[in-house]
Design a protein around this nucleic acid. Structure first.
Lengths: 222, 222
DNA sequence: TTTTGTGAACTAGTTCACAGCT
DNA sequence: AGCTGTGAACTAGTTCACAAAA
């Protein structure tokens, strides 16, 4: 019953909220490591980053006994464990579907590389763009070449940044090419086949939700 | 006890999940209206867009009695009500902080305009960018001019697309200038003063959560 | 008959509080 | 003494199921 990833039951489902938080913890640990902190208690971690100590402990304990009672967590160790749990010990390869403004911005987004992701390709259908490259050098392929490029460049995650009306079709092509994980930026309902994980970022919904807050806060006039 | 926004109690809190869904419903209704559908039942709406009928009814009923028993909801009416609830009956003005790749892409994102938002300004600190415009013509101001521009151009929402290390500072400036709603794209913990609403989109967390899924799905080797 | 609006039942997620290890 | 790991208590969110309205 010793440290290394135990994950109590073979596979009770881990909530998405939990995995999101693991990623947040990892980022906190990166900062702590950069500041040469060697150990940290859940309490201190919570205070420093506005989290809840019990939740941190519960999230971590689900995957193993990483802490030391009376001490806390060893920053380096915990970081290594989290990277392993999140599957970041191997370098993940990403492709961006759609070489519009948003697609190009995402392809060059420095945050991805910094965290160990590698953007290896983009796809579009506009002849004018095909063969071109993003500022940082990611090549833009013809969407028709998708299967061929997947076979050759072996990427794991597709980011969908195409107009809403083509999103469903592009998702299906991506899935047909064997991709199992998708980050979707296009708005609207998309049907996702079983066995494929899709996370959606819906900018319109986010803004409209803020609009609601403003409308309620001010109540009415002025 | 008749239709028009009743909102049972003066102000029990509406969950963020609910407001997000309202925005989704509105988009569904837009599609239905475009397809000349005049009335829709919660059942039909749920089936068509992969939602839950009881939840739709509950979400809507919280704000008023918009439906007609035996019939469903009048698409045009409900749309009007939702737009009013979400505060979309007035045109909301948005500014983007940070004129990097992501900021420029967001400033020109067609989805925002389509839903009635107006991007009125960008801000940056790089002399090379100040005075320039995005492709669609949004002017880039010196961040130092923030207060002046807010006074003149009166925008309601700030989108933060600056590097992580400047995010906290930019948020504080934005709040000091009187902005009450923020959409944040920079990663990392940010402290938000009371009375200000911030929604965060964290691209790294999203990707890492997908990575987790892949790591688990494949279990290990291969 | 059809479909809403809603209390009641259920499920998921968070936080508390403390036994037990170091 | 200090802090983790965790059952128990609590809170939030969803879904069911049905009475009441059109």
């Amino acid at each position: 019953m010793n440290s290394q990833n135990k994950r109590k039951t073979a596979s009770e489902p881990v909530s998405e909220l939990t995995t999101n938080r693991l990623s947040v913890y990892l980022r906190c640990l990166n900062q702590l490591e950069a500041a040469s902190v060697e150990t940290i208690s859940s309490q201190a971690l919570a205070e420093q980053f506005h989290l809840n100590a019990a939740q941190i402990r519960k999230d971590l304990a689900y995957f193993g006994e990483f802490g030391v009672r009376g001490v806390g967590y060893y920053v380096k160790d915990l970081k290594r464990h989290l990277r392993q749990i999140l599957g970041l010990d191997r370098k993940l390869r990403v492709a961006v579907m759609g070489a519009g403004n948003l697609g190009l911005a995402l392809a060059d987004y420095p945050g991805f590389r910094r965290e160990g992701f590698e953007i290896v390709a983009m796809f579009d259908i506009a002849d004018a763009k095909i063969g071109d490259r993003s500022k940082s050098g990611v090549p833009i392929h013809d969407l028709k070449e998708l299967k061929k490029v997947v076979r050759r460049d072996r990427f794991d995650i597709a980011v969908i940044a195409v107009p809403a009306e083509s999103a469903q079709r592009v998702l299906e092509q991506v899935v047909a090419a064997g991709i199992k994980a998708v980050l979707n930026f296009s708005p609207g309902a998309i049907k996702v086949p079983a066995g494929v994980k899709m996370k959606s970022v819906d900018l319109t919904v986010s803004l409209e939700s803020l609009s609601f807050y403003l409308a309620q806060g001010i109540d009415d006039g002025h």
